[in-house]
Write a protein that binds this DNA or RNA. Structure first.
Lengths: 206, 206
DNA sequence: CTCCATACTAAGCGGTTGCTTAGGTCTAAG
DNA sequence: CTTAGACCTAAGCAACCGCTTAGTATGGAG
């Protein structure tokens, strides 16, 4: 089973909810710049130039550079949560495998957004961080529930549910750090590889 | 088997090779600041203040802020490589377990240094980056050799050696991102957990 | 045509950045 | 005491930062 392009059909519209179009272009430009250079090394002039506008145009749709980051982070977190929980499988083994496959390959395919999501949390204001942390808590809970369900069904052999959850999430998240589009593996292949490795980690009955 | 404090005896002197003492204090202050705020968000005034000196003192021992980062990154990479390859076990299963235990717990115990090592590569000059990338190549090769040795000895069941190597390294490295000293697990416990999970991933004969 | 709201830019302000310069302070040898 | 040299600081420079202000172009309603 491989990741189909259809699995990401909804995600091609990651930013589709952002209007007006100029605000969306600015967000996408900011996400690209933050991903490559990092939030603090990116200037508002960089973002504006990438969006093909003047430096002042940033402040028509956003109050500050940090608010730009917050919107990227919030939409990115919400999208990755829906990818993780959007799997249709009901059998615990197949369900965890499908969720890991989707979540890991999302971090590869959308590594630009994923890097901002995972590595720029400390640049958010306390209020914005709190909102994003709540989404992260729900992501962790979703994985923990899938692991617990498999243990309860007798399909997994896991001595430490919290520890296994931590490792599964960590493994998938770190894809955003090392993935390169020109690299050896496609996002779909990474998803398949990681689904297999995770089933081994949780001792899934084969 | 737990990680003993003796395992890190040599590492308590991570910066011992840096002289004179004032240059060492400056390096340690920079590592702490880069780790918390990130390289670009850290000012040379921050570093100097943390070291208890004036802003100009930075430039007595280092040519630039980037050179400070380079020294931290180089020493950090070299130390983590020696932690990984310094294990004494010869049996493939015990050897990989010991290496993962040491490598993962190092990323927790020395997460301050490890964060600079893993997340500030893009701030290095091309020349300095090349030197560090060579050390990273040797780290990856060390893990790959351990996995290959186990496969060759018939002790591991790994369909994709490169993929498993990638996942093992990725898992350990990401500890630096999520670890918190006030958290639920000690570095030694993380090492033990990860050694077990990695042996499951490579299908080690039990 | 006028009127007005929206979307944008040119110019620039106050503050901060990495880094430099000129000079002061200490220790130890002569 | 003088001198040399290592080590450090006070002050500040040019460049750049996030963000603001004042004003322009555009297009639809009356």
């Amino acid at each position: 089973m491989t990741t189909t392009s259809g699995e990401f059909a909804l995600l091609d519209e990651t930013w589709s909810s952002v209007t007006p179009p100029a605000a969306r272009r600015m967000l996408i430009a900011a996400a690209a710049a933050f991903s490559v250079r990092g939030y603090h090394a990116t200037t508002t002039r960089d973002i504006a130039a990438q969006a093909g506008m003047s430096p002042a145009a940033v402040y028509i749709h956003y109050r500050s550079k940090e608010e730009l980051l917050f919107h990227i982070s919030r939409i990115g977190h919400a999208t990755s949560l829906s990818v993780l929980t959007g799997v249709s499988e009901v059998d615990p083994v197949a369900r965890l495998a499908a969720a890991v496959r989707a979540f890991a390959s999302w971090h590869a395919e959308y590594h630009t957004t994923a890097r901002v999501v995972q590595y720029e949390l400390s640049a958010l204001t306390p209020e914005h961080l709190a909102e994003v942390v709540e989404l992260r808590r729900r992501i962790e809970a979703a994985v923990r529930d899938m692991v617990s369900d498999g243990v309860r069904a007798g399909a997994f052999d896991v001595p430490d549910v919290r520890g296994a959850t931590l490792a599964v999430l960590s493994l998938c998240i770190d894809v955003a750090r090392w993935y390169q589009p020109a690299g050896r593996r496609t996002p779909a292949e990474i998803g398949d590889l990681y689904a297999d490795l995770v089933l081994r980690m949780v001792g899934a009955t084969t």
